[in-house]
């Protein structure tokens, strides 16, 4: 992702796009998923790109009206911003579609391991992360149930003025919070009963092996990264 910000000319963007397209093809994910990933962000992309095109100065002026002007450079910059968004969204979509939340949590733990030397509670953070991820569907279900229960009692969600909507959220949020506190209390009791004392002194059930393909993909990424930085000059 950082490499994407280094790229600043046509060739470097070309190299990165080629790499990401190859990654996508290798993952075997259908293009529809990527379009779905871009969809919620499309307005943000258009807004930023337009802003870039209309307000940046420098280069040969093609058209101008009042404070707005379009120059050949601003068009190119707008195009680059568009490419940046596209590449970032695509590479994050590849990550979330190919990796389970559990593996991501374990990955975060591995990446943060050096922070242990600074007495940062990496294991505790990883445990919190994995419990949080595990409870997401549970809490979503609960929210659905509470919403339906409150609807049955005549609460109207999602219509009326802003003040109304905020008011309607209270009978949803309060039970959701108290429910979450109950979950936490029961879960901590159950964890203690199973011999949990602290997250430092534990063995790990899962082990991730560094394989040759990991080395290969890193070599490719480093090569492309170096190439992009060289092309930049």
């Amino acid at each position: 992702m950082i490499i994407i910000f280094f790229a600043n000319n046509l060739i470097s963007y070309g190299v990165l796009s080629a790499l990401i397209i190859i990654v996508i093809l290798m993952s075997g994910i259908s293009v529809a998923y990527f379009l779905k990933g871009i969809k919620p962000l499309i307005w943000l992309i258009i807004f930023t790109v337009l802003l870039q095109i209309l307000f940046s100065s420098g280069g040969h002026v093609l058209w101008h009206f009042g404070p707005f002007s379009i120059t050949n450079e601003s068009l190119v910059n707008g195009g680059f911003i568009f490419m940046r968004f596209l590449l970032i969204i695509m590479i994050s979509t590849v990550l979330t579609l190919t990796t389970t939340p559990l593996a991501i949590a374990d990955g975060v733990q591995t990446v943060l391991k050096p922070l242990k030397k600074l007495h940062f509670p990496v294991d505790t953070l990883a445990l919190m992360l994995s419990i949080a991820l595990r409870f997401v569907p549970t809490l979503m279900d609960e929210m659905e149930t509470i919403m339906n229960a409150q609807r049955a009692r005549g609460v109207d969600f999602g219509s009326g003025s802003l003040k109304h909507r905020v008011r309607a959220a209270v009978p949803l949020l309060v039970p959701l919070f108290t429910g979450a506190i109950n979950h936490a209390e029961n879960l901590s009791t159950a964890m203690e009963a199973r011999g949990f004392s602290d997250s430092e002194h534990r063995t790990k059930y899962r082990l991730y092996h560094w394989q040759t393909k990991d080395t290969i993909s890193w070599i490719i990424f480093v090569l492309v990264g170096v190439a992009v930085i060289l092309i930049r000059k």
Binding site: N182, N186, R194, G195, T203, Y205
Partner: peptide, 20 residues
């Protein structure tokens, strides 16, 4: 509320992990 692990096997392993 007593399901600690992210998956079934992680949950069964939880108590074992605590016992090193």
């Amino acid at each position: 509320d007593q399901f600690v692990g992210a998956t079934v096997e992680d949950d069964v392993a939880f108590g074992l992990e605590n016992r090193l």
